[in-house]
Design a protein around this nucleic acid. Structure first.
Lengths: 346, 346
DNA sequence: GGGCAGAATGAACACGTTTTCACTTTTCGT
DNA sequence: ACGAAAAGTGAAAACGTGTTCATTCTGCCC
């Protein structure tokens, strides 16, 4: 490499590459856009010189003219929450392979709406948005995103699937929770559980609402009494305290269905280390998510799983399909759940 | 709100706002840049109309002319890793308050270098970069980031602090691990531990290398024999297996110092559920990080902590200082560590 | 060799902002 | 009330790219 003309301070521009390769600036632009027509040897030369100069087309300029930022916005209440961190991780990898980057935003942890944050995110002009904050109404989300079509994670109830059927405005990933929950209740019933309690997640979360209602429905169908409800918020600490209250103030239970795995951990630790009860002998526990920690030996949790890889692939499909057809009606993907049996039932 | 002129399809532009407010397009620009001079009532009118039209200055256009994207790149091997997810979470919140957004990239989990990823990230033109991949050489990092000055997390050894002293090219956060490790060793020694083992993290990680060497140094100074080393990679699974090997194949230990908290969990679960040993009666365990899970009752881990909030504040300071003085020499911040005593020692 | 299709090329424009630079208006001290 | 300083204003230039369009070049067939 002859360093006769070292790249000047700052970023190289298409102009400089063109000058050095003795071609027009347009040719440089074409060299980086595969579908354009340019003599192969010329393209090769340009790319070589571009590499020497450490040149890459400026994304800002490119975004300005093309209207595409190649950014995917994610709104998350808590990155540390295990389930979400796993999804962010897998999604980021998948999107990276498609030429996108993850743009991360944090909202309030109580799952409430935050219009200010939406406006803030809008400023960055993401091509697509995945809202982990499920209680934002689709139309509200759409109002804040002129160009990007948000992807909405939907938890339909049985018999309610077609509530807003037809062609929704937004793209949607439907997560069918019924199968997994049904398997869970059947298993508990099989082991003779009579008094089942539900440890809830954040009250404003749609995922929680849907889980609770589906559980009620399934239990009623199987002739079980409605579950007692201990109020949590998806966190370990709240679950821990709620479990203590359930047994000290309330009437206890012989099985607890937690809205998420981390909550189930809090339940188990409260049972074992605070109430002196054994799991699964005295109380059976089932979680929801199947996060990586659920197979750790201290917990070894039986839990309802939805396949993460499948979920990520579905989301990426939604994103790409939408970008190829900006004005098409809402796309949908569907995901099922199933029970993973480990050591906390019997 | 009179809907006489609803915003047309797509994004509103400064031009439209100007037209409606009967001012020049330049005035609109000024209305959004606080330090410029514009008659207050005029600014107020413009902002009001901007809100009606749902207008926000386009970041791409703004970046094109100002050279600032307000993006902070983060390179992470594993978002799920508890320590990193906590740092990402806190950093994102802090940066959001300063008008920045987090741009997330994933690299290989073995902490090895990935030039391709750096080039990819470079394309997005982040204003700053925080490298969690500690083994990338500063000069390599700098070569890939023309404009952004990377922030480097450094783990100096005692007596080696001034190895590259003076004015480093890159900004640096020094994490002094010695105090915490010293307190940990002193505590173990106080409880009569004789045969201390070290469960390592990923071999290519600088954090791990520094931890191991500092531990050796401290133990030598206190007249202890060098620690046995069990090879892990920061993961629960590797720690679990390495612990079993240490006791089944190797010679065992009466205390284990893990390179991170998650590793310590793997150690504890292997000891309790696979080897039938008690913690802390038979084997004492100490971790590193003080992640949120460390106070969960199943582990209740004694661990070396560096204050996350303090760390985040230091990083944000570094970022802002650099943006205000692009050509200044390297800035530095320093962070100390200390032991948090819980139930896994005695 | 002439005609012609298709590829290759470069000039000019568009994208939406910030910044600079003259110019005009207001404010303020005396 | 006068001048000077300060503040307010808009036209025009820049930022680095993609795209359109008219033009030139190449290779091919008869």
């Amino acid at each position: 490499m002859s360093d006769a003309e070292p790249a000047p301070r700052g970023r190289a521009t298409a102009e400089m590459v063109a000058e050095r390769a003795k071609v027009s600036r347009v040719a440089v632009s074409r060299a980086f856009n595969p579908h354009t027509s340019l003599k192969p040897e010329k393209r090769e030369l340009i790319l070589k010189i571009a590499q020497e100069l450490n040149y890459t087309p400026d994304r800002a300029a490119r975004a300005l003219v093309s209207g595409r930022t190649h950014l995917v916005g994610m709104i998350v209440p808590d990155v540390c929450s295990h389930w979400e961190s796993q999804e962010i991780d897998a999604l980021t990898t998948a999107l990276q392979n498609e030429g996108f980057a993850t743009l991360l935003f944090k909202t309030r942890t109580d799952y409430s709406m935050d219009e200010q944050l939406l406006a803030y995110m809008r400023g960055f002009n993401p091509d697509s948005v995945i809202a982990f904050v499920e209680n934002v109404k689709p139309k509200t989300l759409a109002r804040f995103l002129d160009r990007a079509v948000p992807i909405y994670v939907h938890y339909p109830l049985a018999g309610q699937d077609d509530e807003s059927a037809g062609q929704p405005l937004h793209d949607r990933l439907n997560v069918l929770q019924r199968d997994g929950i049904e398997q869970a209740v059947a298993l508990l019933q099989g082991f003779g559980a009579k008094r089942i309690a539900y440890l809830s997640g954040a009250e404003k979360s749609r995922a929680n609402g849907s889980r609770e209602r589906t559980l009620r429905q399934v239990m009623a169908e199987r002739g079980l009494e409605p579950p007692m409800v201990a109020r949590g918020d998806f966190s370990y600490e709240a679950a821990y305290q709620a479990t203590i209250d359930l047994f000290r103030v309330g009437q206890g239970a012989d099985a607890i269905f937690a809205a998420n795995d981390v909550g189930a951990f809090g339940v188990m630790d409260a049972l074992r280390h605070e109430l002196g009860l054994r799991v699964p002998e005295d109380v059976k526990v089932i979680g929801f998510d199947d996060i990586a920690q659920s197979h750790w030996k201290s917990y070894n949790l039986t839990t309802v799983k939805f396949d993460l890889d499948e979920r990520v692939r579905a989301l990426v499909r939604l994103i790409l399909r939408r970008l190829n057809a900006p004005d098409a009606p809402g796309f949908q993907e569907t995901l099922n759940t199933r029970l993973v049996v480990r050591g906390t039932v019997g």
